[in-house]
Design a protein around this nucleic acid. Sequence first.
DNA 1: AATCCGTCTATTTTT
DNA 2: TAGACGGATT
Length: 721
Amino acid sequence: MSELLSHLNPEQQAAVTLPNQSALILAGAGSGKTRVLTTRIAWLISTGQISPGGILAVTFTNKAAKEMLTRLTAMLPINTRGMWVGTFHGLNNRLLRAHHRDAGLPQLFQILDVADQLSAIKRTLKALGADDEKFPPRQVQYFINAAKDSGLRADKVETFSEHERRLAEIYAAYDAQCNREGVVDFAELLLRSYELLSRNELLLEHYRARFKHILVDEFQDTNRLQYAWLKILCGRDNAIFAVGDDDQSIYAFRGANVGNMRDFERDFHIQTVIKLEQNYRSHGNILDTANALIGNNHTRLGKNLWTAEGHGEPVRVFEATSDTEEAQWIVDEVRALVADGLRRSEIAVLYRSNAQSRVIEHALFNGGIPYRVYGGLRFFERQEIKHALAYLRLIANADDDTAFLRVVNFPARGIGARSLEQLQDIAAARGSSLHQAVPLLAGKAGGNVGAFVALIDDLREATRDLKLPEIIEHTIHQSGLVAFYKNEKEGADRVENLGELVNAATGFVAEEDDGSLAAFLAHAALEAGEHQAGEGSDALQLMTVHSAKGLEFHSVFISGLEQGLFPHDQSANEPDGVEEERRLMYVAITRARRRLYLSFAQTRMLHGQTRYNVRSRFFDELPEGLLKWLSQRILPPQRYAEPAYQKSNIRARAPGGAARAPGGGAGVPGWRIGQNVVHPKFGSGVIVDAEGSGSDARVQVKFADVGVKWLALQFAKLAAV
DNA sequence: AATCCGTCTATTTTT
DNA sequence: TAGACGGATT
């Protein structure tokens, strides 16, 4: 047991060994968050406080869940198979499968991913005859998901206009349709489960008695519903161990509610908030840059990263005349880094929006540098895979209309739009699924569709006693999918992917306890699989800042640091938009271990037009002394009218050199950033920034006692130490 | 049923 | 600029 704790710092140890009560762990970037979480579990188990089955550990991504299990197995000689460690959605899926009857679901209910949900909504809209000018499917989808994420059913949604009233009606109709078909969307997994627990006292007591310890990762990303779910699961004797970082909350746009952290302290009577502030990832200058930046946010729980390691290199800044020049500069720098022996996979290029990758990719391609772009189609989202899954879904549940419509005429079997419209009318009139309506379809159309239904029935019959990989093998051939793609000009890859699907199933059966078709389909929906491209090979990593969260690299480029891009224009319309953008920048900076590059371009091609940009305001929030400007340009001073009072978190330990204004302007002779000073009234402090010259010269000093202040050197009686 | 063409739009995304 | 989509054409 002491073995478990021996590698932890005092704060980490304190967190791991907290007594049996709810606690909030404020875990900064790179502070060993996952380690604390998993060691806590291991500690609880190995001290006999709980059995593995009494643990409920929740994450947001499958990757994080897997990581936890892997580390846990390394620490403890236990079988983690039966443990409830998983994503919110994965665990709730498990819960609903176990209690499908109480939850009002068919045993083999299917899960709709985002694309499935959208097509389901389109059908609802069509069935209602809704005006698709006034109700774009995407907006309807957003409305429904936002409502569900807040825990609201259609009849509970507050409506303030005729339009919203209508949206709520559509929501109700959509839910009815899903119930008819036996399918649930992502948000529904949580809402259904929450409702199940809140109306079923016995069941709730059962799980409360079982899960004495609930641990939550990335708590700052929880939405209202997830919070409510945790709250209801937590009875008098349960303890929630919530780990999160409010400074890394970057998903407000999809419902994450940072406020949950404050609410948590209140609702759960948290006595202990432990801060993990020692960073094991980055050198000092990088952390100080990040601290200075995030210090400009007003709504923080408060936290300051530090490291026992040295300052390291200054942060490199490059101003390019254009986006193409910026891209070329990145290519050149990457080449130099690689020439120094750095692996390409240890270098990341980050950007705010996906559109920015194009120029960079172009330059990398021409420069012959292998790279990998994150984001984009994932395995289970590919067309041919979704088609195959649709056949499989129909085998499991013939009433799944989304799957039915997807493949009823794919490969083509002479079933046109009007046959399907007839069929949908019949189904609507009877309130049945399409499958059930088929026998009533007359004429030739009825024959063709009937043949399709017969095909599905045959598939189900023929695969009844087969193992999962064989079921899939049989299905992709008998459905005609493989033959179809073999005939296609560009179909070779797709045929190969269908083969991969069989392999995926083989792997799934080997790894999971439950190797059933239903389990595999749930897996396909809940874990869309790896992003494609260049696996394994040593490639430069390109991704948005959002997808970089949780990762780290030796060297990081943050590109496109321009007003309008980062912070993004659209964020200005959102409440606390700039603060969220700043957190995003904070996340980006803290990805770097050793070297950080910041760049921006004066002109950029956006939407086919050249835009003229000024550099991001975030530059004015970074300690100038930590930056090394690679480009020699005179920049106009760009101070924003923002109060400086929150610039208090700077841990200035700048290297030497005269304090300079941005762009190598006039220095402040006799003083340098990082210098220790004493003021007769404010006490001792350190210079963190400087500007102006002669009688205008001012320095910014961080005082130990009174915070950060700008002082005019002409008047202030400042003494060097 | 497939293909073409004009129009529209463009932040971030896991499950 | 480039992709997605819907409607019209072949």
